[in-house]
């Protein structure tokens, strides 16, 4: 055992990187669910974003354009879901699952010609001055821009839900769509916008994996991260900051366990692999005491005449 081989600064820095795709997708889904829509298609939107971003990035040579394309790709796919569930009033669970399967297939098709290609690399961006702070600098301020973006979006989402009128309306739609409708809010329009936002963020999360974290395109490369993001929303009790905490925990446990293994620590891998779920159970138990649970209209279809 040689714990000194683990550099805690590098560990925390890579923890942040590992958590970013989860964080982006989970924050997007938080907004969707706060609007009362359960979109189980996160995995499908992520993988679609991953290939859209990758393809555009390779073709244009610009990682930023790639990231924007990923957001558009994810949002476009979520539009299918929005149409099915908001206009055609299809079952949200079934539509979401279909979206995941569709996204996986579509991305494999789109990605046929992109295997084994290296994308232009995303430049790391050291924030001037802040990057020079000892310890904290290398962890927080010497990352790629998407890490900053994800953190900023988390804070923005939190502030949006907590302090703004629009956030209040979104929550009202999610809690009681009939009452919101009676007050004159356009439930379907608001929900569609929320779904698009969720799709865009999931797409970006996927592109983070294909453009920065790995970086390459391989079929099925998101490998279940979308599902963890979905679980995180519940874990975080539909609150952005708690969701972010969960993302660091889930993303981090992976990096920590690999580090411990490489350093030769004899903790059974199974225990580490199990720990995020144990913590989830624990949090769920503690949360059940706290009455602010799921949005009341979550997963229910809305139609003005019903």
């Amino acid at each position: 055992m040689d714990l000194s081989a683990i550099n805690p600064v590098l560990l925390l820095a890579s923890l942040l990187v590992a958590a970013t795709p989860l964080l982006l997708a989970a924050i997007g889904e938080t907004i969707v669910e706060r609007a009362g829509v359960l979109n189980l298609g996160v995995e499908g939107m992520m993988i679609t974003g991953a290939i859209c971003g990758f393809a555009i990035c390779v073709n244009t040579g610009s990682p930023v354009t790639g990231l924007v394309a990923a957001a558009i790709g994810g949002a476009a796919l979520s539009l299918v879901f929005a149409f099915l569930t908001q206009v055609a009033l299809a079952n949200q669970v079934a539509s979401g699952l279909a979206l995941t399967l569709f996204g996986l297939g579509l991305s494999a098709l789109l990605g046929q010609n992109y295997q084994g290609i290296k994308p232009p690399s995303f430049p790391r961006f050291d924030i001037p001055l802040l990057a020079d702070i000892p310890v904290l600098g290398p962890i927080l301020f010497r990352q790629d821009p998407v890490v900053y973006l994800a953190l900023a979006l988390t804070l923005a989402t939190w502030a949006f839900l907590k302090f703004t009128r629009a956030g209040l309306i979104l929550r009202a739609v999610g809690e009681n769509h009939d009452a919101a409708h009676a007050l004159g809010y356009k439930v379907i329009r608001i929900r569609t916008l929320a779904i698009l936002f969720g799709g865009a963020l999931a797409g970006m999360g996927g592109a983070y994996i294909s453009l920065i974290r790995v970086p390459q395109w391989t079929e099925g490369m998101t490998a279940g991260i979308g599902w963890i993001a979905l679980a995180l929303v519940v874990f975080g009790a539909w609150k952005p900051l708690r969701v972010a905490l969960g993302a660091f925990l889930f993303g981090g446990i992976e990096v920590v366990q690999l580090n411990l293994q490489a350093a030769g620590v004899a903790i059974p891998v199974e225990i580490l692999a199990m720990s995020p779920y144990l913590i989830t159970i624990l949090v769920l138990v503690i949360m059940s005491a706290d009455r602010s649970g799921a949005p009341a209209s979550l997963g229910r279809s809305f139609h003005a005449s019903h």
Partner: peptide, 25 residues
Amino acid sequence: KIVWAYTWFDPAKEADAAKVLIEQG
């Protein structure tokens, strides 16, 4: 230095494992 990924195919995890090994020298 040996790291077990407990997967045959998971690009993100494999990349993480490689990074960890590189970080540890």
